[in-house]
Structure formats: structure tokens, C-alpha cells
């Protein structure tokens, strides 16, 4: 177990270093967040929606923009592995597929979660919306969705990684799998913003948790088949 964690630590450092050197995914995610929010802000202001009506469409806009821009940006996740076929070196050095998957999952979750926070803030400013009362609940929903999104995109970016059409294939494959995440996120955000908190007994957090567990379990068990030919 100790050597497994040591290996995971080394892989996490590698993922962070690669991301910090290139900053491609971070830049793409944050630029998408700002540009999309600005476009939506201009679009809704020309539709003459009042603040109350804008609040009603805010959750749907937030989660649509989040899932679309994050899944489109995630194509970079596997490209650095393919450049020098570094992942094969990892396997030869004794790293296991679940270790590689978990390291990518953790770093991608952190990136997507940061993207979610930036997008929620910029979109709220663009649509002139107040900060929610239950910030913690909204952040928890964002974190749960980020981890499900990361599990799906890390797995599928390895599957689609060798295709020249990976930029198209990855969003096409991942978005249908993310429908449950979209519905849960939208419903939870609507309750948090309109009611002020999540209603007790609402099924959405549980569904999001189940999606998380399912996608992470699928990723851990199938990642090896995506890595080896």
C-alpha cells in the first residue's frame, strides 16, 4: 500500500508539473469560462430579461457552459502521454493502470473544480446575480460534478486519444454520459439559488454521488484497456 501511494504521489507530481509547464488546459478552461459568460451576459441583456427571470435560467446556463467547455478542453488530458508515449514508460516502470487513472482523475477534478468556481463567479457577475446563501452546497455540487466529469473524460480521452478526430469524438462520447450530472447540477443549483438551500430528501445529491461512484469504478477497471492496444 505504501509503495502504491508513493507511486501515486510521483504520478501526481508529474501531472501537476506537465500542466504547470504548458498551462494549456488551465488557460483553455478559464478563457472559455470568461468568454462564454461574456457572450451569455450580452445575449441575455439584449433579451430584456429581468433579474428574477435571469435567476431562473442561471442554473441551466451555468451547467451547460460548464459541461460543454470542460469536455471540449479535456482533449488535452491524454496528448502529453502520446507525445513520447510516456504512459508506456510508466507501465514498464511498474505503475498500474488504476494508479495512472487516479492521478489523472485527481488533477483533472481539481482543474475542473477551479473552472466551475471561476465560471460561476464570472457568470453571476455577467448576469448581475447575487452570491448564493449556501455557497458550501453549491461548491459541493461543483466538486461532485467535477469528479464525475473528470472520470469520464480521463477514460474517454485515452480511448479517443489516438484518433485524429479526438477533438470531436471526445465531447460526442462524453456528453451523453454526463446527462445525469447536468440534471443533478441544474436541479441542485436551482434549489440553492431560488429556495436558498438544498431541500431535505431531494434525490439529486444521491444521484450525483452514484454517477461519481459508477464513473470512477468504470474508469479504474477499464483504463488499462484504453492504454494498451
Amino acid at each position: 500500500m505504501k509503495s502504491w501511494l508513493t507511486g501515486l504521489g510521483a504520478l501526481l507530481i508529474k501531472e501537476l508539473r506537465l500542466e504547470l509547464r504548458g498551462k494549456e488546459t488551465v488557460t483553455l478552461l478559464f478563457c472559455n469560462a470568461i468568454l462564454a459568460s461574456a457572450l451569455v451576459g450580452v445575449g441575455t441583456s439584449s433579451a430584456f430579461l429581468d433579474r428574477t427571470n435571469t435567476l431562473k435560467i442561471f442554473p441551466m446556463l451555468l451547467w451547460t457552459l460548464f459541461l460543454l467547455s470542460a469536455s471540449a478542453s479535456a482533449v488535452r488530458a491524454h496528448e502529453q502521454e502520446l507525445e513520447g508515449r510516456g504512459f508506456e514508460g510508466l507501465l514498464l516502470a511498474g505503475a498500474t493502470s488504476p494508479q495512472i487513472f487516479v492521478s489523472k482523475l485527481l488533477v483533472s477534478t481539481a482543474l475542473f473544480f477551479a473552472h466551475f468556481v471561476v465560471l460561476a463567479c464570472v457568470l453571476a457577475v455577467a448576469l448581475d446575480q447575487p452570491a448564493p446563501l449556501s455557497v458550501g452546497q453549491l461548491l459541493a455540487a461543483g466538486l461532485g460534478a467535477s469528479s464525475a466529469l473528470a472520470a469520464v473524460t480521463v477514460l474517454l480521452s485515452a480511448v479517443a486519444g489516438t484518433s485524429r478526430m479526438r477533438g470531436v469524438i471526445l465531447p460526442l462520447l462524453s456528453l451523453p454520459l454526463l446527462f445525469p450530472v447536468f440534471f443533478c447540477g441544474t436541479e441542485m443549483t436551482a434549489q440553492i439559488l431560488i429556495v436558498g438551500h438544498l431541500e431535505p430528501g431531494a434525490p439529486w445529491p444521491l444521484i450525483l454521488l452514484c454517477a461519481d461512484v459508477l464513473y470512477v469504478a468504470l474508469g479504474v477497471s477499464l483504463f488499462e484497456f484504453a492504454l494498451r492496444d
Binding site: T6, G7, L11, L18, G22, Q80, E83, R85, G94
Partner: peptide
């Protein structure tokens, strides 16, 4: 060792070797 060197081109030589070294103890 193959035609692909199984290295990460953005990492330094030392970082690459530390990574593969850590994985193989």
C-alpha cells in the same frame, strides 16, 4: 527502449528519471 523513448518532453531529464525511479523503487 524503443523508437519512442517513453519520456515526457516537457519534463527535464532529472524529473523524468526521478519519476520512473520513484515508480520502480
Amino acid at each position: 527502449l524503443s523508437h519512442h523513448l517513453f519520456l515526457y518532453s516537457r519534463l527535464t531529464a532529472r524529473e523524468n528519471l526521478r519519476l520512473f525511479g520513484a515508480l520502480s523503487g
